[in-house]
């Protein structure tokens, strides 16, 4: 279980307050969808969760343990995949598995076992000796997914995992995420595809202008806003909170 309390991140260099106040609760064995318009602070929140960024203030707890004090241990249990993070193109999938497996202190037997399983599932096996930079976008994404799941993490953080992929690859990834959910993993997804949220997510968190404005089950979202669909609820929440910012801005309080 992950608990986020009043998370804040200010980039000192360009004085941007990317995340102002985000509080969320994410449970094991569920898919948590993180929604928000572009620039709302989703990626920054996810980067803080994955330990790539240090929060300016606020706390993150993994199963009751605070992230700051147990970063190294917690990091070994996390997988983070985003379109922005790429693997070194000069390696083959086999070499990448050896490299990253070694960094996660996996034994050779365990690496081989996981590699065979994941490569087989994602259809990488026949390309395992080919360099990563020769792959198509879909194949790269599948390889990245296989490599980042190699160490069998408990928490999987995906930033727009199916963005730009064909329907077959999307389905493959979606079904694997559901498999992981069944195994009791904690999955956090950031996406703009609300249909995907409706089909897969158990809980949802919405961030607008760096603030969490909703955190609850998918089934609660629409009724809580007095509308019928997730889309309508999202737009309503966005308009309400974005307008609030604009009013504050006009009064010079920001």
């Amino acid at each position: 279980m992950i608990t986020i309390e009043h998370l804040k991140k200010t980039f000192k260099k360009n004085k941007v307050e990317a995340v102002k106040d985000v509080s969320l609760e994410i449970f094991d064995g569920q898919i948590f969808a993180l929604l928000g318009p572009n620039g709302a602070g989703k990626t920054t929140t996810m980067r803080m969760l994955s330990t790539l960024l240090t929060p300016t203030s606020g706390k993150i707890f993994f199963d009751g343990k605070e992230l700051g004090e147990n970063e190294e241990k917690i990091r070994s249990r996390i997988a983070f995949l985003t379109n922005e993070i790429r693997l070194d193109g000069q390696f083959t999938p086999d070499e990448l598995a050896d490299y990253y497996g070694g960094l996660y202190e996996m034994t050779s037997e365990k690496i081989n076992e996981r590699r065979d399983e994941l490569f087989e599932y994602f259809g990488i096996s026949e390309f395992r000796k080919r360099r990563y930079d020769t792959f198509s976008t879909g194949m790269k994404q599948k390889t990245s997914l296989a490599i980042c799941l190699l160490h069998d993490p408990d928490t999987i953080i995906f930033d727009e995992p199916t963005n730009g992929l064909d329907i077959l690859t999307q389905q493959l990834i979606e079904s694997y995420l559901l498999k992981l959910k069944e195994e009791g993993k904690c999955i956090i997804l950031s996406t703009h595809i609300l249909d995907l949220v409706g089909r897969m997510a158990d809980r949802v968190g919405i961030i607008v202008d760096g603030r969490s404005v909703f955190c609850g089950t998918v089934s609660e979202l629409a009724p809580s806003q007095g509308v019928e669909t997730i889309d309508q609820a999202f737009i309503k929440l966005y308009k309400e909170n974005h307008e609030e910012k604009a009013i504050i801005g006009r009064h010079g309080k920001e």
């Binding site: 190294e72 990091r75 996390i78 790429r86 693997l87 070194d88 193109g89 960094l103 980042c148």
Partner: peptide, 17 residues
């Protein structure tokens, strides 16, 4: 160069120091 190509973050994410 690796950071620019965004291949370094994957390494940083591992438990290795």
């Amino acid at each position: 160069g690796e950071k620019e190509r965004q291949t370094f973050d994957t390494l940083v994410l591992s438990p290795a120091k």
